[in-house]
Design a protein around this nucleic acid. Structure first.
Lengths: 117, 117
DNA sequence: ACATTGTATTGATGATCGTCGATACATCGA
DNA sequence: TCGATGTATCGACGATCATCAATACAATGT
């Protein structure tokens, strides 16, 4: 179940642009919560570091030093948040970064939208 | 207790720039976790919406519809994460956005640092 | 000094989370 | 079809979290 039914790039106005609607805040918080765990931050950076910004679980389990079910669990969080996609190729699951979601979150946090300047 | 002893703007390389060190991931995750709650996202946007990007608890309690201790608790999370500062002026606590932290997180998520382009 | 007002802290409770082992599902090769 | 391999799900457990009522702390005015 994806997080956003509409295009993620159009989710929300910047956090710094004014009072945010409760629903927008809920969606944003869900994505930030997915980033709110050290293991998931590392997993995301490890995927991004691969050529083509994609990786299979087999590439990720050993470096993070956690069990395979735990890595699968974290990857599911990232997929549900819309930060990565999952594609089955043969026996392997390949996870790829969703640049649009990262760009949206990056824009939301941009302090250049602050009223005072 | 602040999150970072060093300058927050120099915390970490972009998530998309390569494999991240465990310590950097830990620090980033702590900040993202602070953003991982809808109430805190709204509080942050409400502070940003105020002139001068600052607000007191009295301005925040009623709009979010939660008790005063709960709002104080959330604000402490945001302060500890380095996203806002607290300044006591008379009886009131004024919270202000820390643009540098937002800028750092925004840069960390910028997908333009992806190896593939 | 004392009452008032704004905010922080404490203690408690129900909910969610991160982790694992065990197991189920899926895909491939013989 | 059957075993092997990669991944996802299930069930459980301890830890953390969001929330509140009660209370403590801090600053102001009388």
């Amino acid at each position: 179940m994806p997080l956003l039914t509409t295009d993620q790039a159009d989710c929300c106005a910047p956090v710094t642009a004014g009072v945010m609607e409760a629903e927008d805040a809920k969606q944003l918080a869900r994505m930030f919560k997915a980033l709110g765990d050290p293991t998931r931050v590392r997993l995301l950076s490890m995927i991004a570091a691969q050529s083509g910004a994609e990786a299979c679980v087999c590439d990720l389990t050993e470096p993070v030093g956690l069990s395979q079910p735990t890595v699968s669990h974290h990857m599911k969080q990232l997929v549900d948040a819309g930060l990565v996609t999952r594609e089955q190729r043969g026996k392997w699951s390949y996870y790829a970064i969703v640049p649009e979601t990262l760009a949206m979150l990056s824009a939301v946090l941009d302090p250049r939208s602050l009223p005072a300047g």
